[in-house]
């Protein structure tokens, strides 16, 4: 079986605060894996450790079979070219307009000419249902939903093998959330990418996931398919999916 991402016994602590307690997960080529969990459960830290933005305390992370801790900076940047990231707030560069944002990785990462990069950027804009008219607009002039679309276009611009979605629908209204979720599915299917997403949004989760992992207190305590999500007896999953105020999450927190 070919895995795009492999994580083995990943641990991360910040001083005495142990955030990840030994996480293991594997993402197959073409699979969409979604990590769910409450606020502060370590979802963002997990993504950042996988991308090499945070150095893990211990454990192994492999992207496309390469152990990232063993890579030189140059090799790491080469590996990152095969990863796209959609950040929670979009993380679009304020000083650049939409088209420069989308073509950034193509120009600076792949060394493509501006003309070539712009051509690809326009194609990606169309893929996320935005017209060429927004190309010269700056991110601050766009609505939240449009910013997410532009950020998605930037994340897929380099045709990555795997794309990371950090709470892609947070802060958006339900309709825009649905549109973004559908766009994510469209991009994954059309471009045959793998995806690792983290989300709180149950509707988005049902739409974009093939496999789901529940992160709780630094461990993945449940893993299953999209269908198993609604049929499982796991009390943690049940409480999370139903948004119930009583259950193991809250009982444990209250103790």
């Amino acid at each position: 079986m070919e895995y795009v991402v492999e994580v083995e016994n990943l641990k991360k602590s910040f001083g005495r605060n142990h955030v990840l307690h030994g996480i293991s997960l594997k993402i197959k080529r073409g699979e969409s894996y979604v990590v769910i969990g409450g606020s502060g459960s370590g979802k963002s830290v997990l993504t950042k450790c996988i991308l090499g933005l945070i150095k893990p305390t211990s454990g192994i992370v492999k992207i496309n079979g390469e152990r990232i801790a063993k890579l030189s900076q140059k090799e790491m940047f080469k590996t990152l070219l095969k990863c796209g990231v959609l950040y929670q707030g979009g993380a679009l560069f304020d000083s650049l307009n939409v088209i420069d944002n989308i073509s950034f990785g193509l120009v600076y990462g792949y060394g493509k000419s501006i003309k070539e990069a712009y051509k690809i950027a326009i194609e990606k804009l169309e893929l996320v249902d935005l017209s060429e008219k927004v190309a010269k607009i700056f991110p601050s002039e766009l609505s939240g939903g449009m910013q997410k679309r532009v950020a998605l276009a930037r994340a897929i611009a380099t045709n990555p093998d795997i794309i990371f979605f950090d709470e892609p629908t947070t802060g958006l209204d339900p309709i825009t959330s649905g549109i973004i979720s559908e766009l994510i599915v469209k991009c994954i299917k059309e471009m045959k990418m793998s995806a690792l997403s983290i989300t709180h949004d149950i509707n988005s989760l049902k739409c974009i996931s093939d496999t789901v992992g529940l992160l709780y207190q630094g461990n993945i305590i449940w893993e299953g398919s999209n269908q198993e999500l609604t049929t499982t007896d796991n009390p943690y999953v049940k409480q999370f999916i139903n948004g119930s105020t009583t259950g193991p999450f809250t009982n444990r927190a209250a103790r």
């Binding site: 950042k48 940047f77 707030g89």
Partner: peptide, 12 residues
């Protein structure tokens, strides 16, 4: 706003 992380993940 994670723009510096974005630079890194865009291989810059």
């Amino acid at each position: 706003t994670e723009q510096i992380d974005a630079l890194t993940t865009l291989s810059v």
